Amino acid sequence: VFVDDHLLEKVLELNAKGEKRLIKTWSRRSTIVPEMVGHTIAVYNGKQHVPVYITENMVGHKLGEFAP
């Protein structure tokens, strides 16, 4: 499973602090992992960042699938 390192670091850091804030990313190719559930990730679609709230059903899919 591929997840960009910088994105995973941000998610794990927020989980350690117990925070839930918006994470901006250009990494549409990253796979959604269970650690991301409950976070809102702003995924770049080529024009703007689209906020995507991550749920359990999204695990295993790519971030780009949810930012048309």
Rank of each mutant, 00 (worst) to 15 (best):
P51I: 11
D4H: 03
S30W: 01
V52F: 06
N15V: 05
K20C: 09
M36I: 02
Y44K: 05
V3K: 01
K17C: 12
Y44Q: 04
T31C: 15
D5M: 15
A42M: 06
T40F: 06
A67C: 09
L12R: 13
A42W: 03
D4C: 09
V52K: 03
L22V: 13
I54V: 14
V59N: 04
V1P: 15
H61C: 14
I41R: 00
V50F: 10
V50K: 12
I41Q: 00
L14A: 10
I54H: 00
D5C: 15
E13D: 11
H61T: 09
A16D: 06
H49P: 05
K10P: 01
R28Q: 06
K47R: 10
L8E: 02
T31H: 15
T25A: 03
K62C: 14
G38E: 08
F2L: 12
L22M: 12
V59W: 04
L22G: 04
V37E: 09
Q48D: 13
E9F: 11
G18K: 09
G18I: 03
E65Y: 12
L63A: 02
T25G: 02
I54L: 10
W26G: 13
R21I: 12
M36D: 00
E65V: 09
P68A: 10
V50T: 11
N15C: 03
P34M: 15
V33A: 05
L14N: 04
H39K: 02
I32H: 00
T55E: 13
N15K: 03
T40S: 09
V52N: 03
H39V: 03
E19D: 09
K17I: 11
T40V: 11
D5L: 15
I23E: 02
L7V: 03
P51W: 05
H49E: 04
K10H: 14
P68K: 11
R21L: 10
K47P: 06
V33W: 04
V1Y: 04
R21M: 09
G46R: 11
Y44N: 05
A67L: 05
V3D: 08
V50D: 10
G64A: 11
K17G: 07
V43W: 02
K17Y: 08
A67W: 03
Q48M: 15
G18E: 06
V1R: 07
T55R: 12
Q48E: 14
E35V: 14
D4K: 00
G38Y: 08
T25I: 02
V50W: 10
E56M: 13
V59Y: 08
D4W: 01
L7G: 01
P51K: 12
V59I: 15
R21D: 10
N45F: 09
H6S: 13
